[in-house]
Computed example of a mutant assay.
Amino acid sequence: TQRDKGYLILASEEINSGSDPSELACTASMSIDRDAVEYNMRHKNRGLALIFNHENFDVPTLEPRTGTNVDCENLTQVLKKLDFDVNVFKDCRLNELKQQLVSASQKDHSENDCILVAILSHGEHGYIYAKDVQYKLDAIWSYFTPQKCPSLAGKPKLFFIQACQGDECDPGVTLNRRTETDGDSSMSYKIPLHADFLIAHSTMPGFCSFRCPMQGSWFIHALCTELEMNGKRLDMFTLLTFVCRRVAVDYQSYAPDTPKKHEQKQIPCITSRLMRILRFREKRALQ
């Protein structure tokens, strides 16, 4: 198992959204009633899904991310089944990545339910890598604010980030079920230290993220499994809770020659600012 480990390098350029604090509040068409419990997922189209898949890098200290193409293929297939218009971009340099984000933000999303952006790359806390340099991840969201993309105002904007956020590893804690027989460990299992807390980062800030060269990363594999099984049945918050459980319980690193990396755990970090329930309703049934 390999880690999506990044190295701190000062980029010659970071994504600059061009945001101006003096910008006035904008107005946009209402896509849903003020007090609606669920997002309106009955538009003509589901929406765009942009996948930025980074395998090889110009930065000498960054190793190729073997296994990322498995993640990309799995994610592409499951998002197509959820009726997304999927666009895959391989090994983009920063300027190329910026151009694709600007292009997407300038489209008319009036007939779309939402937008989804997935980034598969190396990273450090607060930074992620394009092919040539690193940039601040926070800048990506700003391309899709109502000022930049009014046709997405009031609609879900989803970001999935598969990348390390640091070098720390999570050794986990073993939970034992109390039984009448002391030492009965048949119902014991190991979970991360940071479990039971509930953005969709593959790991906690400061911690590494694990990836298998053959099966892809733990997080994307679990995410695709849940989207495949429950993507049109469960709401997104519930689904991501199940993703957290899969990553936390079903996976453990195997690196016996490197004790610090051996038998380590991982927990995704999901931060939600959604205001309503999000459910990918069946498109064919609505048309």
Results as ranks from 00 to 15, higher is better:
residue 2 Q to L: 12
residue 7 Y to I: 14
residue 7 Y to S: 15
residue 7 Y to C: 14
residue 16 N to G: 03
residue 19 S to E: 15
residue 19 S to I: 15
residue 25 A to I: 13
residue 26 C to M: 08
residue 31 S to W: 03
residue 37 V to P: 00
residue 43 H to P: 03
residue 45 N to A: 06
residue 55 E to V: 13
residue 56 N to P: 03
residue 59 V to D: 06
residue 60 P to L: 11
residue 61 T to G: 02
residue 64 P to M: 06
residue 67 G to Q: 07
residue 70 V to R: 01
residue 72 C to W: 12
residue 74 N to K: 15
residue 75 L to T: 07
residue 76 T to Q: 13
residue 77 Q to G: 09
residue 78 V to I: 14
residue 82 L to W: 08
residue 83 D to V: 04
residue 86 V to F: 01
residue 86 V to I: 06
residue 86 V to N: 07
residue 88 V to N: 08
residue 91 D to R: 03
residue 97 L to R: 00
residue 98 K to G: 00
residue 101 L to Y: 11
residue 103 S to E: 12
residue 105 S to F: 11
residue 112 N to V: 01
residue 123 G to A: 06
residue 127 Y to A: 10
residue 127 Y to F: 15
residue 131 K to G: 07
residue 132 D to K: 03
residue 133 V to H: 00
residue 138 D to F: 10
residue 139 A to D: 05
residue 140 I to K: 01
residue 140 I to P: 04
residue 143 Y to H: 11
residue 144 F to W: 04
residue 146 P to K: 03
residue 148 K to R: 12
residue 150 P to F: 05
residue 153 A to L: 04
residue 163 A to V: 04
residue 163 A to H: 03
residue 184 D to T: 08
residue 185 S to N: 06
residue 189 Y to A: 05
residue 190 K to H: 11
residue 207 F to D: 01
residue 211 R to A: 01
residue 211 R to D: 02
residue 214 M to Q: 14
residue 218 W to S: 07
residue 219 F to A: 04
residue 221 H to E: 13
residue 222 A to S: 15
residue 222 A to W: 02
residue 223 L to R: 06
residue 227 L to S: 14
residue 230 N to H: 15
residue 231 G to E: 11
residue 234 L to M: 10
residue 234 L to V: 00
residue 237 F to C: 10
residue 237 F to Q: 14
residue 239 L to D: 03
residue 239 L to F: 11
residue 240 L to A: 08
residue 243 V to Q: 07
residue 247 V to Y: 00
residue 247 V to M: 01
residue 248 A to W: 02
residue 252 Q to M: 13
residue 256 P to K: 02
residue 259 P to F: 00
residue 260 K to L: 15
residue 264 Q to V: 13
residue 265 K to Q: 09
residue 269 C to W: 14
residue 273 R to C: 10
residue 274 L to C: 00
residue 279 R to V: 14
residue 282 E to R: 08
